[in-house]
Design a protein around this nucleic acid. Structure first.
Lengths: 200, 200
DNA sequence: AAGATTAACTTTACAGTGTCAAAATCATCG
DNA sequence: CGATGATTTTGACACTGTAAAGTTAATCTT
C-alpha cells in the first residue's frame, strides 16, 4: 500500500497537515494559516507539504473538504435531535448551518472560497455534494408538484447563508448576543413561508 | 491646508493609493492587492503608504469605504431607473445589489471582511451606514405597523446577500449564465412575499 | 539477498510580502 | 534665510510560498 499507516518517515503526514491547518484556522483565523506553520506543527520541513498537496491552494482545498464533512455533521445532528415535522427539520437544518458558522467561522470562509479568488483549485466534489444533499432532502417536502427543486433550495440556502455571513461579520450588531435573539427568528419566520401558498 | 491639492511631493497620495488598490483588486482579485504594488502604481516608495494608512488593514478599510460608496450608487441607480411601486423599488434594489457584486466581486469581499479575520480595523461608519439606509428606505413600506424594521431588513438583506455570494462562488452552476436566469427569480419571488400576510 | 527504483523528506535558495527605524527631502512659517 | 514638521526614501528584518537539488528510507526487480 502507498498511503497506509507506518510510512517511512512521518507515518501519516497529509492528515497531520490537514489537522494542523484546521487547528491554525480555529486558533488564529485565516491569517494564521500558512504552509510553513502547518509543516512545523507536523514536525516536518517547510517544503514537505509540497509532496502531498499542490501548494497552499491544495492544502486549503483539502481543509475545505474536511470542513464540509464537519458541516454536514452539524446539520444532520441538528436534524436528528428529536424533531419530527418536515417544517421542524428544515428549521433545525438551518440552525445547524448557523451553529457551524458560529463555531467554525474560519472553516466556513475557506469552504466558500473567501480566501482569495473565487474558486479554489479543484472543486471539492464528494463532501460538498453530500452537504448539498442534506439541504436538498429537507427542502424536498416543500417543492411544489412538478417544479424545479432548485427553487426552494436556492431560497433556503441564500437566506441562511446570507444571514450566517452577515451575523458573523457583525452586521446585525454584537456577535455575542444570545443565539435565538437577534433577527435570526425573522429569518426563520421567512423560512416558514417557503413552499407555502400566498394569500389570495 | 493639509490634505488639499498640490502637496509637496506627490500631490494626492492616499487617493492615488486607494485608486491603485481598487484597480489591483478588479484586475487580479484579492490576491493581487498588496501595499507595495499600490505604492509602485502611485509612483512612490514601498514604505510611503504607512504615513497615510495604518498598514495594510488601514488601506483595505479605506478601499472598503470607497466600495460602499460605489455600492450605494449601484442601488440608487437601480431604484431610479423608472420603477414606481414599492415592490418594484425593493426588487430593483436587490438587482442593484447583485449587479454590484457581479461587477465588483473583489470590492464586495473586502467590504464584508472576507480578507482575513472578521472585522477590519475601524468599522467604516459613514459609507456603510449610508448603504444601509438605502436598504432601510426600500424596506420601510413592508414593515408592519409597530414592528421592528430590522426584521424585514434582515430578511431582505440575508436573502440577497446570500444569493449574491453563493452565485459569485459558482454554487448555483456556471457564473456566466444569463442574469435573469438561474435561481435569481426564485429569490425575487421570495422577496415578493416579504411583508405580505400569509394564507389563513 | 543485492542492486535499482521510486517515494518521502530536507536543504538551500529566491522572489515576494508587511512593517519598522533612521535618514533624507520638501513646503511652509517665522 | 533658518527652522520646523510633515512627507517620502532607504535599508533592514521576519515572514510568506515555491522551485530545484540532494538525502534518506521503503519497495521492486532480478
Amino acid at each position: 500500500m502507498t498511503t497506509a499507516k507506518t510510512r517511512h518517515h512521518h507515518g501519516d503526514l497529509k492528515r497531520a497537515l490537514i489537522k494542523a491547518g484546521i487547528d491554525l484556522l480555529e486558533e488564529g483565523g485565516l491569517e494564521a494559516l500558512s504552509l510553513r506553520k502547518c509543516a512545523a506543527r507536523a514536525g516536518v520541513s517547510h517544503a514537505a507539504p509540497a509532496h502531498h498537496f499542490a501548494g497552499l491552494p491544495g492544502l486549503i482545498s483539502a481543509i475545505a473538504e474536511e470542513g464540509f464533512a464537519i458541516f454536514s455533521k452539524y446539520m444532520t445532528d441538528a436534524i436528528d435531535a428529536g424533531k419530527q415535522t418536515d417544517r421542524e427539520r428544515l428549521r433545525s437544518t438551518c440552525r445547524g448551518y448557523l451553529q457551524f458558522g458560529l463555531s467554525h467561522s474560519g472553516l466556513l470562509k475557506v469552504m466558500f472560497g473567501e480566501h482569495g479568488l473565487g474558486i479554489h483549485a479543484p472543486r471539492n466534489k464528494r463532501e460538498e455534494a453530500d452537504a448539498y444533499l442534506i439541504l436538498r432532502s429537507v427542502c424536498a417536502p416543500f417543492v411544489p408538484e412538478g417544479e424545479d427543486s432548485q427553487i426552494v433550495e436556492a431560497q433556503v440556502w441564500s437566506l441562511i447563508h446570507g444571514f450566517t455571513l452577515l451575523y458573523l461579520g457583525g452586521e446585525f450588531g454584537c456577535t455575542d448576543t444570545p443565539l435565538e435573539d437577534s433577527p435570526f427568528e425573522a429569518v426563520m419566520a421567512l423560512i416558514d413561508r417557503i413552499g407555502t401558498p400566498a394569500k389570495a
